[in-house]
Simulated scan of single mutants.
Amino acid sequence: MPTAAPSPLPPRPPRGTLHLPDVRHVALSAPLHWLALGWRDLWRIGWPSLLHGLVLAAFGALLAWAARGQFWLLAGAFSGFMVVAPVLATSLYALSRALEHGEPANMRTIFKTWTRWQYSRFAAQGGYWALVRFGLLLSLAGTGWVLTSAALITALAPAPVHTPADFVNHVVLARQGYLFELWLFMGGLMAAPLFASSVVAMPLLLDRRVDVMQAVLTSWQAVLTNPAALALWAALIMGLTLLGMATALLGLIVVVPWLGHASWHAYRALVDTRALPERLPPEGGR
């Protein structure tokens, strides 16, 4: 019995053409809806999602132990973590996508996301390696902020900063100079363009056959189209992350997967991907 011929892949844009998807306008309250959808996904999936939070909370605890007595390094490292978080949440996006498609969202989905995509037939066409390239760029940016933060605090603090109390006394509450304001300004100066570049870039790279430049420009377009809503979204991400850190990192077990799933719904609400070819999850080897 003859088998049906496989359906052809969607045509790729001509070389040199940069096609960007349409970006939707969303209400100012949309981020609250994304959080509600992310919360639903978190508890529908259960422990595979919570495992992400547990791993990252354990990594944070290891980081805190390694940087003990050097709080200036810890402050930079934890803020740098915010930069690379969209990369670490890749398999959380894949889990939410599986739920959306009515497919099993389980450990097999996570395993395929992190191990077998590079063998898919799209890899040779710029495929999932775009995720790796973008992840490396964000990691370099995070490392740059850690070094910048360390240099600022070490060089300009009026006394050595070794503990959280030292950071509060000699940086936050310093009576002379503006070190804390400078530290916040430098962090914001780096974080704002990185947020604008990554707010929907990683989910888009996972979901559709686009390159890094298309994903980053689409992300910027989403921010410029919805500045107020995405400013609120950035504030919610930062606030919930700080809350997770303030609970001796235990809150990150829930906060990390919650925000990861919510970010998938932010991407789906903001970007009209109907004109872009889908990047199908790999099912096996080559």
Results as ranks from 00 to 15, higher is better:
87 V>F: 14
233 W>V: 02
110 I>G: 08
158 P>M: 10
59 F>A: 15
260 G>V: 09
168 V>N: 12
91 S>D: 13
126 G>E: 12
59 F>Q: 05
283 E>F: 00
203 P>W: 12
172 V>Y: 06
182 L>K: 05
217 L>F: 09
109 T>W: 09
196 A>V: 06
234 A>G: 13
161 V>I: 08
17 T>K: 00
132 V>W: 07
79 S>M: 10
80 G>L: 02
274 R>M: 05
286 R>F: 07
263 S>F: 02
18 L>N: 01
221 Q>L: 15
115 T>W: 14
285 G>N: 02
76 G>F: 02
98 A>Y: 01
82 M>P: 03
112 K>L: 13
181 E>R: 14
214 Q>C: 13
207 D>W: 08
188 G>R: 01
84 V>M: 03
64 A>C: 04
175 R>T: 11
286 R>T: 07
102 G>P: 13
141 A>M: 05
53 G>F: 02
154 T>K: 13
127 G>A: 10
231 A>V: 15
265 H>D: 13
105 A>D: 04
78 F>C: 05
179 L>T: 08
155 A>M: 13
25 H>N: 09
254 V>Y: 04
165 A>N: 09
246 A>D: 11
271 V>W: 05
47 W>H: 07
18 L>M: 14
92 L>V: 07
47 W>C: 00
281 P>C: 11
199 V>E: 07
76 G>K: 02
188 G>H: 01
146 V>H: 10
48 P>I: 01
126 G>R: 06
277 P>K: 00
256 V>L: 11
157 A>C: 12
53 G>M: 05
247 T>Y: 01
108 R>E: 09
196 A>D: 01
47 W>S: 11
253 I>P: 02
